[in-house]
Amino acid sequence: MSDHHSQENVHVVDYGKYIFVWLSLLAFTGITVSVSGINLGNWTVVIALVIASVKSWYVLNYFMHLRHEDIVFKIFISVALITLAIFVSLTFLDYSFVR
């Protein structure tokens, strides 16, 4: 198991890095707002969710320091996200077919 490390390995993240991430997040916000103006039919929601996921990836990795955490944390979060994905997709087994 890799959860053997303790609090010793301290990562100090530069202010500069945070500012860079913040700027990227603002840029993505701008993109998602401007793209939403274009009529892409069903793709609109897909694109909005993809951009939101990219933004979340930045927040998780940099602001929430997931990059510097053990693999266990990453496994945990995948378990949580997969669970949520299962809940959503199996619910849609009902709704996306003729009832």
Binding site: T32, V33, A48, A52
Partner: peptide, 19 residues
């Protein structure tokens, strides 16, 4: 706090940007 932010990242396009 970041989680609160994360939730909003999804709420924003889902409520405000359905065009």
């Amino acid at each position: 706090w970041h989680l609160v932010d994360l939730i909003w990242i999804f709420l924003f396009p889902l409520f405000y940007l359905i065009h």
